[in-house]
Design a protein around this nucleic acid. Structure first.
Lengths: 232, 232
DNA sequence: AGTATACAAGAACATCTGTGCGGTGTCAAG
DNA sequence: CTTGACACCGCACAGATGTTCTTGTATACT
């Protein structure tokens, strides 16, 4: 089975939408979110997904679709973060939890470790974090990375911390971003400063050097919006 | 609060419907199921239920409603609706969102600010965090505090961070704990060291002094197991 | 009697929503 | 070159869907 980018995108959006609204999106909402202008194209692709049994659909019912999680997991398209089917669900079977969404953990971020950070990669995530909406102003396009190394220690980001980023290509000066450096083929976590046509990437650790690069050689992959640390 | 038979019926039907379809019913579907011929009457009662915060509703959105399970549980209505907690979704139609739990945010922790940290207080919490089980080895007896001040800055805990603690009376040397100091009537966040019959409480900030106290004058209220920071 | 309030019904309406049909462009096979 | 599949687009339409307006009934209070 092969899914197009568009189809993966649609699945991803549906998951997001259901997570935050507790009801499925309409065809037009899907289209809008995935940049599809025609409702029939959405239907076309939904039918594809249904044929692959990745979603279920009730004909002629508004919002009559639902994700087939068990199948998604089966295919490794989604990883059940809760691991064991331990039953800590106080509401009983499959209670509709409000405002939850899943954040893919796309890997590690550290000097020299190239990572890919593309929305498409949502489905290659090896792990997922489940977070509550209340923590975020705008819980969309989020992904998570595990921090390796101490280059941001002065910004109180430690080795082992999980940083949650919102995918965006622009950043304000001083923000902490994941930046892709072209000729070095790597993504690093740094404070971002645009100075003329130069970009300054500043680690938060006096023993690491700042990096100056032409703006064209740097692409911002996302901005850190949250830091989570586990101490045990 | 008093619910009419009709309203209870509606809640029950909605729960059923969502359980088997994975999306909420329309006003007319509710009406048909509950023997209500007029859509406006359904709306009327839905508005009632919404006022009681038993359901959530998105205006002018088809099927734009969802049950507020937390609240239903709170009022002991949940069990009425889910029937037996055994019919746990054999088709796997549910989402993998399970194993969540709520953590009460009991207030702020900062020098001089006495806080009470008792399990009993869980119900006075002004706020709740919803977290996923997977983040914690043992998600029991947890509570959260908002950090005020920079006394733990060298431990990478900043002003405004949320620390999650497990309630426990003992601590190992070096662990970060919330400690109650008897004669000062305050709880502070410090590194804990038991040295003979003295307790040393060490802030992680060179500009704050360590505190030495007889062990009897200090009681540990919990140990920090996680730190969460929001940057936007 | 008069009034206010809660509850219910039916009809009308504007909008939303899924579906279907004709058409476009691409690409590989015949 | 032609053909057919595949993916896509725009549009129109019938049916669905939430909202609102008007009316009616019963109960409690003044």
């Amino acid at each position: 089975m092969k899914l197009s980018e568009r189809q993966k995108n649609m699945l991803s959006f549906i998951a997001d939408f259901v997570g935050s609204n507790n009801y499925p999106p309409t065809i037009r909402e899907i289209g809008r979110a995935c940049g599809i202008s025609s409702t029939s194209v959405v239907k076309y692709n939904l039918t594809k997904l249904e044929r692959h049994e990745l979603i279920r659909r009730d004909k002629e019912v508004s919002r009559g679709l639902s994700l087939a999680w068990e199948r998604l997991q089966e295919l490794g398209l989604a990883t059940d973060l809760t691991g064991a089917p331990s039953d800590a669900d106080p509401a009983g079977s499959g209670s509709p939890l409000q405002g939850f969404f899943q954040v893919p953990v796309l890997g590690f971020i550290a000097a020299g470790q190239p990572i890919q950070v593309e929305p498409a990669d949502h489905f290659n995530a090896d792990e997922w974090l489940e977070l509550n909406e209340s923590l975020f102003r705008n819980p969309t396009e989020l992904y998570a990375l595990r921090v390796q190394g101490d280059s941001m220690i002065d910004a109180s980001v430690l080795d082992g911390d999980i940083v949650i980023l919102r995918h965006q290509e622009q950043a304000e000066n001083g923000e902490m971003v994941a930046a892709w450096i072209d000729n070095q083929n790597e993504t690093t976590l740094k404070h971002f400063y645009l100075e003329g046509d130069q970009v300054r990437l500043r680690p938060a650790n006096a023993s690491y050097p700042e990096i100056f690069l032409p703006a064209a050689a740097v692409s911002v992959k996302g901005k850190v919006v949250s830091v989570i640390r586990q101490l045990e």
